[in-house]
């Protein structure tokens, strides 16, 4: 369904991804993980057509991503970033319903969809009239998720969606997120730097380093059969951190 075929992209001469191969089947959740600057966010931007590859092809449903079709593709993809990316001049309600209003959905359809999303994300209904600065970090991420799901997209792309949250809220939202993924059966690509989180969400984990894929598989694969010393170090570092924490 989503595919990067030997895609390279460099910024100012520094490669962000380098001849990367990645395929995500419909209805599956793939987690892209790696240290800072490994190119994981670039993967999502390439899939959205926000940046154009220097070499290689991005395919959506088997067809190369063309500039002319990019708006249509983006409307079938929900995107959530670390701090939510909510528009500060719009209330939570208007952030969520922005695209639906732009596409002139009837008000009743918008209301019904919003009600369903509020239930799904367990967002307090009285928070809908608040502006983003008036919401907590966890609530903002729930609004961002509702906005991403509003048009009922086939694909969800999440870039460190829990990165800015404190541990308790993070735990709650992790549970809710996984439940939502399972319930909706979307194709999901989630970017994180946290191995435990990756294992929790992912059918499959892709470990990147300096724009190249180092290993792909389950957490078990990486623990039991690390492809190279870097994978070993990465896994060990994460475990030590979690023991101490």
């Amino acid at each position: 369904m989503l595919e990067l075929d030997r895609v390279s992209k460099a910024f100012g001469g520094v490669p962000a991804v380098d001849r990367l191969e990645l395929a995500v089947e419909a209805g599956r959740t793939v987690v892209v993980i790696g240290p800072s600057g490994c190119g994981k966010s670039t993967v999502l931007r390439l899939l959205l057509g926000l940046i154009v590859p220097d070499a290689g092809v991005v395919r959506i449903d088997g067809a190369p991503l063309e500039p002319s079709a990019v708006l249509q593709v983006r409307r079938r993809v929900g995107y959530v970033i670390q701090d939510g990316g909510l528009f500060p001049h719009l209330t939570a309600r208007r952030n969520v319903t922005l695209m639906a209003r732009h596409l002139r959905w009837p008000a009743s359809r918008i209301a019904a969809r919003l009600e369903r999303l509020v239930d799904l994300t367990r967002f307090p209904a009285d928070g809908l009239e608040r502006f983003p600065i008036e919401l907590s970090g966890g609530q903002r991420q729930r609004v961002a998720l509702m906005r991403a799901l509003m048009l009922d997209p086939d694909v969800l792309l999440l870039d460190e969606p829990l990165g800015a949250l404190d541990p308790l809220i993070r735990f709650d939202l992790q549970n809710d997120l996984r439940a939502i993924f399972e319930q909706l059966g979307k194709t999901v690509v989630l970017v994180t730097h946290d191995l435990a989180e990756a294992a929790y969400f992912g059918h499959r984990i892709v470990l990147l380093r300096a724009g190249r894929k180092v290993q792909e598989g389950s957490l078990e694969d990486m623990v039991e059969r690390p492809a190279d010393p870097f994978v070993e170090r990465f896994v060990r570092a994460q475990r030590t951190l979690h023991l101490e924490a």
């Binding site: 926000l50 708006l71 983006r74 995107y79 970033i81 701090d83 990316g85 922005l98 695209m99 906005r147």
Partner: peptide, 13 residues
């Protein structure tokens, strides 16, 4: 930039 990117990602013309 995150807001610019969010607006782009929504698929607004």
């Amino acid at each position: 930039p995150p807001l610019v990117e969010s607006a782009l990602a929504l698929g607004l013309s």
